[in-house]
């Protein structure tokens, strides 16, 4: 299953189902045109790493896909089945750590997209929240104040909330920044679990080792789309490389050269 899906991003398998489609998307961030004319298809169930130098517009693109920013031109099409089932984890979470609420309550905000103001977040839901906290290794922290959490624990909490959101499309912006190895391993295992469940995951990250090891697909961005496809192909083409000069990346490659997929878009 996973292999077929992985293959889809490259080729015109008519059966493959696009979860999110980008059509010539440009997004402005502040006064900068951070993303220019990016087209891409993220197949349902794919696990894609978005890589690229700082300032490449990765976060901006993800924000636009999450609906937080509006594209200045082009279209972002979320498959109708998944509208409202998109979860977004920003690079710097806007979650206020000085709020007077407990860890358990903060995690339960993951039910908001599903419940809204409606009542009925009962015992079962709270139990699921506890399980989610357990899954990220935060059992025993339910009653703690948010301010008492360390950076890594905080990121675990955000993942627990993502678990409760039960989204079909997950957009993660550098989830492992400033996180220790143990936590990273834990969070990666959760991501792989989501992948197994057939969720579509798009994850911005810098760590090439992690990309190579865990992410079947990658998408290289430097303002424009520099290339996308199987991760190992991207390494072969030196679009992703451990000794890559990022300046070279910005100028040295014409997008057409590497975009095999452009034709079928």
């Amino acid at each position: 299953m996973r292999d077929r899906r992985s293959f889809d991003i490259l080729g015109g398998d008519a059966v493959s189902h696009a979860a999110i489609t980008l059509q010539d998307v440009s997004v402005r961030y502040g006064r900068v045109d951070a993303v220019q004319d990016v087209s891409a298809t993220f197949i349902e169930g794919s696990l894609t790493a978005v890589a690229g130098p700082n300032g490449a517009g990765k976060s901006t693109l993800l924000k636009a896909m999450a609906g937080v920013l509006k594209p200045t031109s082009g279209q972002i099409i979320v498959d109708p089945c998944f509208v409202g089932r998109v979860a977004y984890l920003p690079q710097a979470s806007s979650l206020r750590r000085d709020m007077p609420i407990s860890v358990l309550e903060a995690v339960c905000t993951g039910y908001w997209p599903q419940f809204g103001e409606r009542l009925g977040i009962g015992g079962i839901c709270v139990n699921r929240a506890r399980e989610a906290l357990d899954a990220v290794g935060l059992s025993g922290f339910e009653g703690r104040a948010l301010a008492a959490l360390s950076g890594g624990q905080f990121q675990r909490l955000l993942f627990a909330r993502l678990i409760l959101q039960d989204a079909k499309i997950l957009l993660l912006d550098e989830p492992f920044t400033a996180i220790d190895g143990d936590t990273t391993a834990k969070l990666i295992s959760i991501i792989l679990e989501w992948h197994k469940q057939g969720r579509t995951i798009v994850c911005v990250l810098h760590d090439l080792l992690l990309i190579r090891k865990y992410f079947p697909e990658s998408f290289v961005l430097a303002g424009k789309c520099m290339g996308r496809g199987h991760t190992h192909t991207m390494f072969e083409q030196k679009l992703l490389s451990y000794d890559l000069d990022m300046a070279e990346l910005q100028t040295g490659y014409e997008p057409q050269q590497v975009l095999h997929t452009h034709d079928h878009l």
Binding site: V68, V86, Y88, S94, L95, I101, W112
Partner: peptide
């Protein structure tokens, strides 16, 4: 409460 806690989360859940 949730909007106080996390504005971006609210915005992302509300379709922008």
């Amino acid at each position: 409460v949730i909007e106080c806690l996390d504005t971006d989360f609210m915005r992302a859940s509300g379709g922008g």
